[in-house]
Write a protein that binds this DNA or RNA. Structure first.
Lengths: 218, 218, 218, 218
DNA sequence: TATGAATGAGCGTTCATTCAT
DNA sequence: AATGAATGAACGCTCATTCAT
């Protein structure tokens, strides 16, 4: 008897939902396989290990994201090489929103993956990200830099991560944040609004004039 | 025979370092007690449970932070009630820097605690934070809002969390980020510089004019 | 590679022996799994928890006991509805003896289970016993009452428990008692003799005329 | 500052209550010292070990019991050397009742001590009982035997333990049994009634004519 | 392709006990 | 006489993984 969707996919979907809610370490393979209604051994069979499953989840999210950004950027660059930050960020948000339409939790788990990748002991996952996706996003980043305030290379590095932090933190925890905001989680319109709210803030952050003088030591 | 520093403190210091590096779930009590060079049972003796240790770590960081911000704000408000965002953020950064001088890892673990508190299943820790520290930080937040761009209450809520995300993400992972920046970790001057870099970015983010029109639906 | 008997059974057999010797709390899962020559985690895999194992042991003993008593009683009631206490008790003893033939320790552990069920904090186990086996033994108990001395309902309740106590205590500790009697434990004939010795004693206890007058207060 | 009752006694009283409710293994020294409101180390200080505390509890119960039985028996034997079982058992019950008046739980814990002493691994406690109290109760037992049905020595041994079992089981669990009887625990009159109910039953059990023929083997 | 059974390692916690004062 | 601190050993249980079918 055939299942409507195959085992590997069922596992990935269940894993995304649980990773988003609980984090990776906190999610057990028993939880994943119970949620997916598959055998406990199926994860190791299909993905070799729990880490293998994490990588699979990563790919399933990053590939279409990179694809969409690359295509959108290429299209836009065809008409003009001058793109404003607002437009670039809207491109990104659109792509994130499409990822989120795969299923409810994918955006949250995606951001948690980025969080994880920056942890000290996750050099392997970090290398996976860098080697696989850094080249594909390079031209997008160069466009960002072009419309940001003029600044040294390392200043831009930090600004980028400030902004990445804002996005990752917010989207990792938007379920909690919506509750704190005293509004109940209704539909994906919520997430669209949050993404939209970010654009002017991120733009301003990247365009702010850098300070040159330290605040006095203590 | 007396130890130079008492057992409970040794445990907290070891826990901070390991929590900062690995996260909470990933850090085991055997790692902590081995690092602190104390008996495994000592954690339960002094803190009742692993979660009790997490709470103790939280308090040890939050209390002086709140104290310093409260004092600094009161001092400054004595001379004038108009304070610019840059100055307010400098207050915050100074306080964070002082926390960090307790020991090398405290700032990182502090930020990870905030991360943790926003996770879905950590309602208990979140309530602990909110009930204990939200009131003490309220007047500081009102000052921030006073010099931010005019905006609705919920817009300010989200901006605040974008900024919180930037800070938390960066400081949780600054060890990794320093490595990525191809500079080795040298001394606390690094962290001071990062904190300083944030001020104009966060200021610009809070002062950016809010967009009123959605980007068109997809 | 197949074992001669399957893991779950090996665990139950080992548990019975150790429970009989040492009691439940005093028996550790490491003792059980070492005795059964299986992995420590196997108990949790097959029975979910230590308590789950206790329940499994209970069922394995109570089910055939109830079955045998029910069948024997039905057979006997077919020929006549008047059954003497001696015969009823012989039925019980026979059933207990059959349980004991499953393996050497089962009778002892069985009685210890009853002991445990009457402890204050074991309401759960007690309820399990009552709900599952009380109905199946009801008609047997009614037959006992029919040939006992005439007495009020609550007097019968207490007599029954005096008798239950005699049986439980003796059979829980018969290994010790045999040693105290200065005879070494040889074979199952011993236990058969003990069971037989009980019949006239229990009969007399149930048929004794109840006293109506208190002994004078002190 | 002096306490009204000294530490050692406070510990014993707390231990009796908890042992009666939960059993020995199930009762921890933390529970005992918390209940007694004394330091955790006090048990080891006053009684050397947990087993030492068990022995102390035993002595505190057995000494007055033996004293009372010895005195009562000597008094009665002064007037006549022929004593009926009912009267002998009433002596015992009276003594037990006095023990119970020390405090509410003492009778229950006393019976549990006897239970424990008959367990396989408790040879030490058993030897303590036998060497210390068997001689003092010998003449009482000879009187019992004198009015029991004529029987061989080993038959009497077993009968005695059947009866001991009835008493121990009932009194160990009388709190539970009172609940099962659907009557709430009110006062010590309950226990007096139970003890009274036992007399004719135990008498009949000891006086029953022994069967000489086995029930046919199966 | 898939799974029930099993496993070694390790988890947080609790135990009775001892030590230093 | 008494106690706060500390400890080694062991507890029941769960982990990701592997194996045999």
């Amino acid at each position: 008897m055939k299942r409507r969707i195959d085992t590997a996919t069922r596992i990935i979907l269940a894993a995304e939902a649980l990773f988003a809610e609980q984090g990776f370490t906190e999610t057990t393979m028993r939880q994943i396989t119970a949620e997916a209604d598959v055998n406990l051994a199926a994860v190791n069979y299909h993905f070799r290990s729990k880490q293998g499953l994490v990588n699979a989840v990563t790919e399933r999210l990053m590939e279409p994201l990179c694809d969409e950004i690359e295509v959108a950027l290429a299209d836009r660059l065809a008409s003009s090489s001058n793109i404003q930050l607002e437009e670039l960020l809207e491109m990104l948000m659109r792509a994130l929103l499409h990822v989120n339409q795969q299923n409810t939790f994918s955006l949250s788990v995606f951001m948690r993956l980025l969080e994880l990748a920056y942890m000290k002991n996750q050099e392997e996952l970090r290398d996976f990200f860098v080697s696989r996706y850094a080249p594909r996003l390079e031209s997008y980043l160069r466009c960002l830099q072009a419309d940001a305030a003029p600044m040294e290379e390392n200043e831009f590095f930090w600004r980028l991560h400030f902004m990445l932090g804002a996005v990752v933190f917010t989207l990792s925890n938007y379920h909690t944040l919506l509750i704190l905001e005293k509004r109940s989680f209704k539909d994906s319109a919520e997430i669209e609004q949050i993404l939209h709210r970010m654009i002017p803030v991120l733009t301003a952050g990247l365009q702010a004039r850098a300070e040159n003088n330290y605040f006095c030591r203590l």
